[in-house]
Amino acid sequence: MRLRLEFTTEPFDLDEPPAHAVVAREVIEAADLDAVDVGPFGNTAEGPADPVLTAVDTLLRRSLAAGATRVSLQINVIEEDDR
């Protein structure tokens, strides 16, 4: 099964990425995922279910510890045709 993850961390800071956003980006970029796209207003990644779910666990734990007050995420099952 392949999954697509979309997430944001808050609070936002338009002048400089907050620590929780930097940590979230590092977690996703270090995970064994495909099609990683990080940006100031949203982030996406795709990959097999196990690496995505492992990355989500690490993302939540580390970004909350780094000061995130809210993490919004959505996970969708994707078909091979959707890529």
Rank of each mutant, 00 (worst) to 15 (best):
residue 23 V to S: 05
residue 7 F to Q: 00
residue 40 P to C: 12
residue 66 A to S: 08
residue 34 D to G: 09
residue 33 L to E: 04
residue 35 A to G: 12
residue 21 A to Q: 03
residue 28 I to Y: 00
residue 48 P to I: 01
residue 16 E to C: 12
residue 60 L to S: 01
residue 12 F to M: 05
residue 65 A to M: 03
residue 83 R to N: 12
residue 76 N to P: 03
residue 11 P to N: 09
residue 25 R to V: 14
residue 15 D to C: 07
residue 60 L to C: 11
residue 35 A to S: 14
residue 11 P to K: 01
residue 72 S to Q: 11
residue 57 D to T: 15
residue 9 T to Q: 00
residue 44 T to M: 02
residue 6 E to S: 06
residue 50 D to C: 01
residue 43 N to R: 09
residue 10 E to M: 10
residue 60 L to Q: 12
residue 23 V to D: 01
residue 5 L to C: 02
residue 55 A to S: 09
residue 6 E to D: 14
residue 37 D to Y: 10
residue 46 E to N: 07
residue 35 A to D: 15
residue 12 F to L: 07
residue 21 A to F: 04
residue 59 L to Q: 01
residue 6 E to T: 09
residue 64 L to S: 05
residue 14 L to E: 13
residue 40 P to I: 12
residue 60 L to K: 15
residue 19 A to C: 09
residue 10 E to S: 03
residue 32 D to L: 10
residue 80 E to T: 13
residue 54 T to F: 05
residue 30 A to Q: 10
residue 54 T to G: 06
residue 18 P to T: 00
residue 20 H to L: 07
residue 33 L to V: 07
residue 25 R to I: 11
residue 81 D to Q: 15
residue 79 E to V: 12
residue 3 L to H: 07
residue 49 A to T: 12
residue 17 P to C: 02
residue 37 D to F: 08
residue 51 P to E: 08
residue 3 L to C: 08
residue 79 E to N: 14
residue 40 P to Y: 11
residue 41 F to I: 14
residue 76 N to I: 13
residue 54 T to M: 07
residue 71 V to K: 01
residue 43 N to E: 11
residue 39 G to L: 09
residue 34 D to R: 15
residue 46 E to S: 13
residue 1 M to A: 15
residue 32 D to H: 11
residue 56 V to H: 02
residue 28 I to T: 00
residue 74 Q to I: 13
residue 79 E to I: 05
residue 54 T to I: 09
residue 36 V to W: 05
residue 49 A to E: 12
residue 76 N to R: 13
residue 48 P to C: 06
residue 36 V to L: 08
residue 46 E to G: 10
residue 55 A to K: 03
residue 67 G to F: 00
residue 26 E to I: 01
residue 19 A to H: 12
residue 54 T to P: 00
residue 39 G to S: 12
residue 79 E to P: 04
residue 44 T to V: 14
residue 58 T to C: 02
residue 62 R to H: 08
residue 28 I to E: 00
residue 4 R to A: 13
residue 11 P to R: 06
residue 61 R to V: 10
residue 2 R to A: 10
residue 29 E to M: 15
residue 36 V to Y: 03
residue 60 L to R: 05
residue 10 E to Q: 11
residue 37 D to K: 06
residue 16 E to F: 06
residue 72 S to E: 02
residue 27 V to W: 07
residue 80 E to M: 05
residue 81 D to E: 15
residue 56 V to G: 03
residue 4 R to I: 13
residue 51 P to C: 00
residue 40 P to T: 14
residue 13 D to R: 02
residue 13 D to H: 10
residue 67 G to H: 10
residue 75 I to R: 07
residue 63 S to W: 00
residue 35 A to Q: 13
residue 1 M to E: 13
residue 49 A to D: 09
residue 54 T to N: 11
residue 18 P to E: 06
residue 5 L to P: 04
residue 12 F to Y: 13
residue 22 V to P: 00
residue 29 E to H: 11
residue 40 P to M: 12
residue 4 R to D: 06
residue 67 G to K: 11
residue 10 E to W: 06
